[in-house]
Nucleic acid binder design. Structure first.
Lengths: 371, 371
DNA sequence: GCCGAAAGTTTGAACGATCAAATCTTCGGT
DNA sequence: ACCGAAGATTTGATCGTTCAAACTTTCGGC
C-alpha cells in the first residue's frame, strides 16, 4: 500500500459511503450500530487515520493552540514558563489538541505571528504569557475576535471581569500569606519580606500576602512593615546585597530578623547566601516559584501549581469538557471568565540549605513536604 | 470583509488567474515582471496570506517539525532541552518552519504520536531527543521513511555513519578537556573528575575528555586517574556525598585535591556545597551544561552552544539554506550526516561561589567570561 | 395497508491551494 | 510575412475531508 488510506478506501471496504465513515468518526450516535461496527472494523483493518490538513481545510479548525516561547530572560525563574508549557502539553493531549510554538523578538513581531497563524488557520486560539498593563497583544486579539487566554491578570485594568478578557493566574497573595503564616506558626516573630520595586502587579500582590499575615498575626503597623521589607531588582546578586542591609538595619534596631519571605527564588537564593555568610546557618527563608534550583538547593518555596493553571487555560478556551475551542466572546454567564489558582507551600526541612544536616544516603528520595 | 481573501480574490483584483497568483508566491521567477508587480500590489492591498492548511493538503507538506517535550525529570539539567527548544524555535522561524510540540508518557506513547503526526500530515519531520542504545523510535522512523534528526549520538551503535541516521550532538569530550586544560593552565595539578556510573555514552565521553587532558599534561597513569575520579548518580545530593569521600581519600594519600571537573551542573553544585563545608572557599569547580542555576550561583561550566546544535538540526533536515525538508535518505555524499558541536567554556571568576568576594553593586552586569 | 415522520444513508459541492496540461503571447530567424 | 520554440498565462483536476440537501429505509398509528 503506497498511499495512506482515505475515507473512500474505508467506505469501500465497509460497503458504505464516504459520509457514513465521516459520521462514524464525528457523530457516531447518528449511525446505526450494525453499520458503525462494520465501519470501525474497516478503519482498524486499514489502519485509517483522518488527514488533519484536509479536515482543517474543511472545518476551518486546526485543533491547535499557539504559544510563544519567550526568550530565556532571567536565568532561574524563566523556567516557570517552561513548566507551564509542559503542563499545557499534557492537558492538550487529553483534549486532542496540539501546541504550536513560535518565537518572537518583540511585541510587534509576536503580533505578526498571531496574524500569520490566524490567516493560515494554523491555530484556533492563542495563549498569551507575561502580560502587562495595556498590552497591545490583548487589544489585537480582541479586535480580531481571535480566541485567547492570558496567563497573568490584566493588572491595573478596570476590566478584570470583561467577558472578552479570559485569564488564568496564580494567587500570589495567598501564596506569600501561607508562607508567612507557616513561619508564624513556627514561633517566629520578625519575618521580613524581600520583593521587587513597587508598581509591578505581581510584585505588589506578593507583598500584600505577607502584609496580610503580619497584620493578622501581630497587628504590625506601617512602620514595622516598612522596617521589615525591602525592594530590589530581580536576581540572585541584588537579593544578596539588599538582604545584608536589611539584616544590619534590624540588628541596629535591636530587633534582629527571624525569617524571610521572598518574591522569587532568585532573591531567596541571594538571601540564602547572605545569611550563611552572616553566620546564621538556620535562618528560615521562603522563595517563590518552586523552581528546579530551589528544589536542588533545598530552598522552601511556593509552588504555582502550573498543572492547575494549564487545566484552567483549557477550561476557559474549550469549556469544562469540550473538544473544540469556543468562539471568542461566548461562554455562559454563570461561568467565570477567569481562574485564580491557589498556590501550594513546599516546605523543605529547615526552610533553607538543608543538605548540610542530612544523613549521607546515596540515592535519597524526595523529602519535600507540601501543605 | 467577512471572509479572508483567497487566491481567487487576489487574481480578480490583479486581473490575472489563480495560478499566476500562486506562481508569484511560489516561483516568482517564471512570472513576467509587470504581472508580478501587479499581483504583489493586489496581495498587499487585500492583505492576503495563503491558507496553510489548504496548501498542506495539496502539497502534502506541513512546514512543521514535531518535537517531544520531555517531562521535567532532573530538576536542574532538564532545562537544557528547553534551551534547545528555544534555539530550535528561532532557527525554525528563519526557515519559515513551525514547531509542533507533543508530550508522551513513554516510548510507545511517543511512537503513537509519531504515527498520528505522520498520518495527519501534521509534520514533515521529527526531532528525537534523549536517544539511547537501540532506540525503538529510531527504528520506527527509519522503517517508515519519516525524516528525522536525533539530538544525541547513537551511542554504542556501529552505524554512526549510517546515512539513514542523521544526528547532531555536543562534543562533551572536547568540553571537559577544555575545562581541565583551563585548570592546568592555572597551575593546578590534582584535578579530579566527578561523573556518572560507567556505561552511559554521554558520561563516558565526558570522562574521556578529562582523562585526555590529564594524560597529555601530566602523563597520569591508571592508578592516579582512578584515585582522582568518582562516579555517582545524577543529582545535587549524590554529588555532595561522594565528593566528601573523594576529598578524604586524596587527603589520606597526602595529595590533596586541587580542583574538580564534573559531568553536570547538579553534581558540581553538590560538590560546591561540600567543599564549602570542608572549609575550602576557593576550590575551583567546573560544571557541565551551563544551566541557569550555574549562572545564578556563579559556577563555571561548559556551555553546549545549543544555538549551534539547533542550526545543525535544520541543516541536516533541510540542507544548508533549503526551505523544505529533504526526503528521508537523501542528501549528497560529500555532506556529512551529522554535526558535532564543540562546546564553550564559561569561566565565572573564581570557578565557584563567586558572589562572596564581589563588590556590592546593585544591578551588576553579566560578568561571565567565555573562552 | 397506507401515510407521514423520524432515522439512516448517499450524493454533489465546497474548503483553498497547487499540479499538469492546454492555451495564448512574444519574438527571433528566414 | 510566416513558422516554430520559448515564455507567459490560463484551465481543469485534485488533495481528503465535511456540510447541506436529497434520497431511502424503518416503523408506529390509524
Amino acid at each position: 500500500m503506497a498511499q495512506l488510506p482515505t475515507v473512500d478506501d474505508v467506505a469501500q471496504r465497509a460497503g458504505v459511503s464516504r459520509q457514513t465513515v465521516s459520521n462514524v468518526l464525528n457523530s457516531p450516535e447518528i449511525v446505526r450500530e450494525a453499520t458503525r461496527l462494520r465501519v470501525q472494523a474497516a478503519i482498524a483493518e486499514l489502519g485509517y487515520r483522518p488527514h488533519a490538513s484536509a479536515r482543517r481545510l474543511r472545518t476551518q479548525q486546526s485543533s491547535t493552540i499557539g504559544v510563544r516561547l519567550n526568550p530565556v530572560l532571567n536565568g532561574i525563574s524563566g523556567s516557570i514558563l517552561d513548566l507551564y508549557l509542559h503542563a499545557l502539553g499534557e492537558r492538550a493531549d487529553e483534549r486532542g489538541m496540539r501546541i504550536m510554538l513560535f518565537t518572537a523578538h518583540d511585541i510587534d513581531d509576536e503580533i505578526r505571528h498571531y496574524q500569520e497563524l490566524r490567516d493560515g488557520a494554523d491555530v484556533d486560539a492563542i495563549v498569551v504569557t507575561a502580560t502587562f498593563y495595556d498590552d497591545p497583544r490583548i487589544e489585537w486579539l480582541a479586535a480580531h475576535r481571535m480566541p485567547f487566554v492570558a496567563f497573568g491578570r490584566p493588572w491595573g485594568r478596570a476590566d478584570l471581569d470583561d467577558p472578552d478578557r479570559l485569564w488564568v493566574d496564580v494567587d500570589g497573595r495567598a501564596g506569600t500569606r501561607k508562607a508567612t503564616e507557616h513561619l508564624v506558626k513556627r514561633g517566629l516573630r520578625r519575618i521580613g519580606f524581600l520583593g521587587w520595586p513597587l508598581g509591578s502587579g505581581t510584585g505588589d500582590d506578593r507583598r500584600a500576602g505577607w502584609q496580610d499575615a503580619m497584620v493578622a498575626a501581630f497587628g504590625s503597623g506601617e512602620a514595622e512593615l516598612a522596617e521589615l521589607s525591602m525592594e530590589t531588582d530581580e536576581g540572585v546578586r541584588p537579593g544578596r546585597v539588599v538582604i545584608e542591609e536589611l539584616i544590619a538595619r534590624c540588628d541596629a534596631a535591636a530587633h534582629p530578623l527571624d525569617a524571610l519571605v521572598c518574591a522569587s527564588d532568585s532573591l531567596a537564593l541571594g538571601a540564602m547566601m547572605a545569611v550563611r555568610e552572616a553566620g546564621l546557618p538556620h535562618f528560615p527563608i521562603f522563595g517563590f516559584d518552586n523552581t528546579p534550583t530551589a528544589q536542588a538547593v533545598g530552598l522552601s518555596s511556593v509552588d504555582q501549581r502550573l498543572g492547575e493553571v494549564a487545566a484552567g487555560t483549557f477550561e476557559l478556551l474549550m469549556g469544562a469538557t469540550g473538544r473544540r475551542v469556543l468562539p471568542h466572546g461566548s461562554g455562559s454567564d454563570d461561568d467565570p471568565r477567569h481562574r485564580l489558582i491557589t498556590p501550594q507551600l513546599v516546605v523543605r526541612r529547615s526552610s533553607h540549605l538543608e543538605l548540610v544536616e542530612e544523613a549521607g544516603g546515596t540515592v535519597p528520595g524526595n523529602h519535600d513536604r507540601k501543605e
